[in-house]
Design a binder for these strands. Structure first.
Lengths: 230, 230
DNA sequence: AACAAATTGATAATTATTTATCGATATATA
DNA sequence: TATATATCGATAAATAATTATCAATTTGTT
């Protein structure tokens, strides 16, 4: 599956950021970037031109030093007494976190959660093309959910035909998660956004990001207990 | 809203863990506990009695030292050459992360995501009681989703009547998120699991945990780009 | 033009988290 | 019984992330 779309690989390379700009980027910083973007988009729509790190920090309940350190990764420099140019920041952040031009989302498993994710506005807003859903339920196949077609899971190998970076959003039951992931890998997928609670085993060239609601529930529970003492 | 259910407060205190057992617990550790639980539950169902930190670590692709440090918080001690008692570990972890006996979940906003979360099996599995959904859509009010009643959002203040710790799962549109959160606070909620992309402002006695899919998408995107260099 | 205020960005300090090292111990085996 | 081995748990080291300090700079004000 590494052999497909040699041309696309080249196109992609051209659009890549210099490696060292990504290198120092750490997880907490990356996770904050979309939060900055949301604030910047809003300020921009209000007609504002500049913003201070302090202002952003207050909106997010974090420290302004953290904001400045994060923003430094974009290469955008602020002016003392003034702050940062909002439009430059938006460009700078998007350059770091936006997907490459042709990045396609395929949703696997159009159950409750899958159907909900098909309606997630963030895909388009952040530059992803959500193409279709795959399911094995004959009653769902042929229908559309949020205007996206639901296709037979047997058709999944055809995604290799689609040019660009293809991301699979895995929303199948846990007991078929690993085998479905393997089909995705064979189909030439570059990344899996894993909403099952299974730890997937995939080759190194495939990027996996797992969501885990039970982890969050645990945090909520412990925070509540800690909060009871205050 | 701090004045309700004095008796329940007392009951709750009795069930609380010693404060210092929670104190050192850090976020990464808390987030791993449910992952350990899943493995332990599975091993237990297979009839296994003991497990080594190395085995757990391999399943999760983490370091065994991390596992041992995490498990130390449970107070359970393992045996050299043998490992840990699975049943003791399960008890120990649940003691830390399980909610208090009567912890109720209310879902606010029965849209796509909300409806999906109503079907989330993790609530029951981890000891939460999912009671009802609230919505403002008259076509939804009076119906059930995943066997849970959908009630008018006007009824929300009545949750203060329900004994126990009440958690609100916030799935409303972003533009009404803050105002809905304030209603929840007035209604005596103790925690909010926030699935909107708004940073909520709530009093200190209310615990908030925010999910943010766009943060995850950013991580996925950057990881894909980094992976392209390898 | 001098000064005050706001804000950045660099460096340093602190705190959090992961990873390494290693002695101690329980079990199995020769 | 002695020895080898797996494994824990304590301590230490290394890495990551946040927070503090402060000089430099830009703008506005007297």
């Amino acid at each position: 599956m590494e052999i497909n779309c040699a041309e696309d690989q080249i196109v992609e390379k051209i659009e890549l950021l210099p490696e060292n700009q990504l290198k120092g980027l750490r997880l907490p910083t990356i996770r904050r970037f979309p939060k900055y973007l949301r604030i910047l988009w809003e300020l921009s729509s209000m007609g504002r031109d500049v913003v201070s790190s302090e202002k952003i920090a207050n909106e997010l309940n974090i420290d302004s030093i953290t904001v400045r350190k994060d923003l430094a990764f974009t290469g955008i420099i602020g002016k003392p007494k003034i702050g940062y140019s909002i439009s430059l920041l938006i460009n700078g952040i998007e350059r770091l976190i936006k997907p490459n031009n042709q990045t396609n989302i395929f949703l696997i498993g159009a159950g409750n959660l899958g159907a909900a994710l098909l309606g997630y506005k963030g895909f388009e807003k952040h530059g992803y093309n959500i193409i279709a859903a795959f399911d094995s339920d004959p009653y769902k196949i042929g229908t559309t959910i949020h205007n996206k077609p639901v296709l037979s899971i047997d058709k999944i190998t055809e995604i290799v035909e689609i040019p660009g970076d293809n991301i699979g959003v895995l929303c199948v039951p846990g007991n078929v998660a690993q085998q479905t992931a393997e089909i995705l890998v064979k189909s030439g997928i570059r990344a899996i956004w894993n909403f099952t609670n299974v730890e997937l085993k995939v080759p190194g060239h495939v990027t996996v990001l797992s969501e885990d609601l039970s982890s969050s529930l645990a945090v909520l529970s412990v925070n509540m207990k800690k909060n009871a003492y205050k």
